[in-house]
């Protein structure tokens, strides 16, 4: 695809456990967790790609590997024509001005000993974007106003703000260097419903104002369904389905996506009966299942699913999914009742 701002090809991230001396002497292999395995996706300029999955599926790791906050083990990330994975440390530092991240936890992501002026001003200082302290303070103050805080709060410490306000500080820090691309790592998950809506609104407004592109990571289908243009569904380190948000939400093709959608409690009164109950828990990523990684919980699983991993196949305009039984047109609700 051309015109993509960000291209991810075959990205993997494996965490290798530390080996004890004894273990090494005995020739044991270190434990390895493949948090992200062979992920490919494109993000068009100006779009919001929603990345959805349950905890431990590797979605946050993927976001960090793209930014090289966690060094990828394999694969390539191309940002605006530059191979980011091949950049020298110095060039990567410079590139960080254009690729930013907003964190989930508004408490852990702000240094408690530094003032808002320090925290939000840091990118300016590091990238030489402000001439002098006074200019830097002024830019920070402007940014604070843009995210809905008061310029007069510039010398306060993080503990003097509420959770929602702290998240605004984190957003100001991410956007002050005028990036093109922002990874939003569950930016509203830790917030109360009414505050969550404020931050979603703010992120939308800022996207328009600064012409941003988002990778929006969330476990909340409602948020993704409301915000994103396209969505990618992740399960145990792999993308199992991706496509335009309307298509994926209205006609989910992968049984995991189907179960995820049916599990969300909706405010609109719906009949409870059409809900599918996934049995069992997420398998340990230390010891992932063979074949299709979803087969241990999938009501549609057949023999082949246990043996070989399915490939992603196109099922519609820009819509693909990885499932052996894709073309049988099954839905997990029928399969569930048949089983």
């Amino acid at each position: 695809m051309t015109g993509a701002l960000l291209q991810v090809e075959g990205l993997s991230k494996t965490y290798v456990g530390r080996m004890s001396l004894v273990g090494r002497l005995l020739g044991r292999r270190p434990t390895a967790v493949r948090a992200v395995s062979d992920v490919s996706l494109d993000i068009e300029r100006g779009e919001i790609l929603g990345l959805i999955g349950e905890s431990g599926c590797g979605k946050s790791t993927l976001g960090r590997a793209i930014l090289r906050l966690h060094e990828p083990s394999a694969g390539r990330v191309t940002f605006d024509g530059t191979d980011v994975t091949a950049l020298s440390p110095a060039a990567m530092t410079a590139m960080r001005r254009r690729m930013q991240i907003i964190f989930q936890d508004p408490y852990a992501s702000l240094n408690p000993r530094r003032t808002v002026a320090d925290i939000v001003g840091l990118p300016l200082q590091l990238h030489g974007l402000a001439s002098g302290r006074a200019a830097q303070r002024e830019t920070v103050a402007e940014m604070l106003e843009k995210v809905g805080l008061k310029a007069g709060q510039i010398d306060r410490y993080p503990h003097q703000f509420s959770g929602g306000q702290r998240q605004r500080i984190g957003i100001a820090r991410a956007l002050i260097s005028r990036p093109d691309f922002v990874v939003c790592d569950e930016p509203v998950s830790a917030l109360d419903v009414s505050i969550q809506a404020q931050i979603i609104q703010l992120l939308q407004d800022l996207k328009r104002e600064f012409a941003l592109t988002y990778l929006f990571i969330s476990h909340d289908i409602s948020v993704i369904g409301y915000l994103a243009d396209r969505v990618a569904v992740m399960y145990l380190g792999e993308i199992v389905e991706q496509g335009p948000v309307e298509a994926v939400l209205s006609r989910p093709r992968h049984p995991y996506t189907q179960s995820l959608l049916s599990a969300v409690p909706k405010v609109e009164a719906t009949a409870r009966t059409d809900r599918v109950r996934l049995t069992g828990d997420l398998p340990s990523p230390l010891n992932p299942p063979s074949g299709c990684k979803f087969h241990t919980r999938c009501p549609l699983a057949i023999d082949i699913c246990r043996r070989s991993a399915p490939h992603r196949e196109t099922v519609g305009q820009g819509h693909d999914a990885a499932c052996h039984r894709l073309h049988e047109g099954l839905s997990i609700t029928d399969g569930g009742s048949a089983a």
Binding site: L67, T93, F103, A108, S109, N111, L122, L126
Partner: peptide
């Protein structure tokens, strides 16, 4: 391991 350290790395701090 705290997020604000990662945040500083994310904006390009040495």
């Amino acid at each position: 391991e705290l997020e604000y350290v990662e945040a500083a790395r994310a904006v390009g701090a040495s």
